[in-house]
C-alpha cells in the first residue's frame, strides 16, 4: 500500500527553485533513504512532509489524506520528525523533554496525564535510555541526545518517522547504534521510515529503497542494489566511485 504520495510538488527558497513538479510514492512499512549532495533538497523534502515549510504548489497525501487539509496537530499524530540540529536552550530533564512528544494527545489548556508519563517512561526503558531519565538533556553526549530525540519521536506514536541526517556529528560507534536502533524500532513498531543520509554505505545497508536526488530531481529511485552503482553515484556527486563486495558486505568508496 502507498503510505505517502507526493504529486507535482514545487518549492523554492526566495528565488532559488528546489523542486519543480516533483512526484514520488512511498510504500507502507518501508525504510526510504534520501541520498544526494548538499543543497539537493533532502532536508527540504522532509520539512515539506511535516508541514514545517509549505510548498508553492502540489500535494502530499499521507494515508489517503491531503496534508493541506490536516491541522498541525492531526499531522503530528501520523508523522514525527527527528531534526538534525536541536538547540538546547533550557536544561529540561530527559524524561520531561521526551514527554513533550505526547503534545499532540494533550488537549489545549491541559498538561500531560499519568498515562502520558507512563508511555514516555516505557519508551525510554525500551530504548535502553532509562538511566538518563532524570539528567538534564543539556548534559548528555551527542549520541545520547540523538537517541533521546528519536525517543521523543517514538513517544509521539506515529506511523511515519522522518529523520534528518540521524548520524551527523556522531562518532563511529554511535552512528551504528543510532542506525541499528532505527532499524529495530521500525520492525517493532511497524513504522514507515524516511531519512536523509550522507554515507552511501549506511544507505545501502539500512534502506529498503533509496532515492538519489540532485538539485531537486530524481536521479534514481529503487532498491539499494539497483540505485547504488558507479554510474549513478558519479552522475550525482561527479566523483569516481568503486564498489567492492567483501565477506557478504558491500563497500562503497570514493576514488581519488
Amino acid at each position: 500500500m502507498k503510505k505517502i504520495i507526493i504529486k507535482d510538488l514545487s518549492f523554492g527558497y526566495f528565488d532559488t527553485e528546489i523542486f519543480r513538479n516533483f512526484s514520488l510514492e512511498i510504500d507502507e512499512g518501508e525504510t526510504l533513504t534520501i541520498l544526494g549532495p548538499n543543497g539537493s533538497g533532502k532536508t527540504t523534502l522532509l520539512k515539506l512532509i511535516q508541514k514545517i515549510i509549505l510548498p508553492k504548489s502540489g500535494d502530499i497525501i499521507i494515508s489517503g489524506k491531503n496534508i493541506n487539509d490536516l491541522s498541525n496537530k492531526a499531522l503530528s499524530k501520523s508523522t514525527s520528525f527527528v531534526p538534525q540540529i536541536h538547540k538546547q536552550t533550557f536544561p529540561y530533564k530527559v524524561i520531561d523533554f521526551v514527554l513533550m512528544g505526547r503534545n499532540p494527545y494533550i488537549s489545549d489548556y491541559s498538561t500531560p496525564k499519568e498515562e502520558d508519563i507512563e508511555i514516555a517512561n516505557k519508551v525510554l526503558e525500551e530504548m535502553g535510555l532509562y538511566y538518563l531519565k532524570d539528567r538534564p538533556y543539556t548534559d548528555i553526549s551527542g549520541g545520547e541526545l540523538r537517541l533521546v530525540l528519536i525517543a521523543r519521536g517514538i513517544v509521539q506514536n506515529t506511523e511515519i518517522l522522518l529523520l534528518d541526517e540521524p548520524t551527523a556529528y556522531l562518532d563511529f560507534k554511535n552512528q551504528l547504534i543510532v542506525l541499528e536502533t532505527i532499524k529495530e524500532l521500525k520492525k517493532k513498531k511497524k513504522l514507515t521510515v524516511i531519512m536523509t543520509l550522507h554515507n552511501p554505505n549506511e544507505a545501502y545497508k539500512y534502506s529498503d529503497k533509496i532515492l538519489l536526488i540532485k538539485k531537486g530531481e530524481v536521479a534514481s529511485y529503487g532498491k539499494p542494489i539497483d540505485v547504488i552503482n558507479c554510474e549513478n553515484l558519479k552522475r550525482v556527486y561527479s566523483i569516481d566511485v568503486e564498489i567492492v563486495r567483501y565477506n557478504g558486505e558491500t563497500i562503497i568508496y570514493a576514488k581519488k
Binding site: I52, N72, K77, M100, Y109, T111
Partner: peptide
C-alpha cells in the same frame, strides 16, 4: 497558567513546535 504546557513546546523553537503539532 492555562497555557503553561504550551510554553514548554514553544521553548523548543518554531520548527519543533510544528513537529509537535502546534501552530
Amino acid at each position: 497558567i492555562l497555557l503553561r504546557w504550551k510554553l514548554n513546546i514553544l521553548s523548543l523553537g518554531d520548527d519543533e513546535a510544528i513537529v509537535l503539532g502546534e501552530n
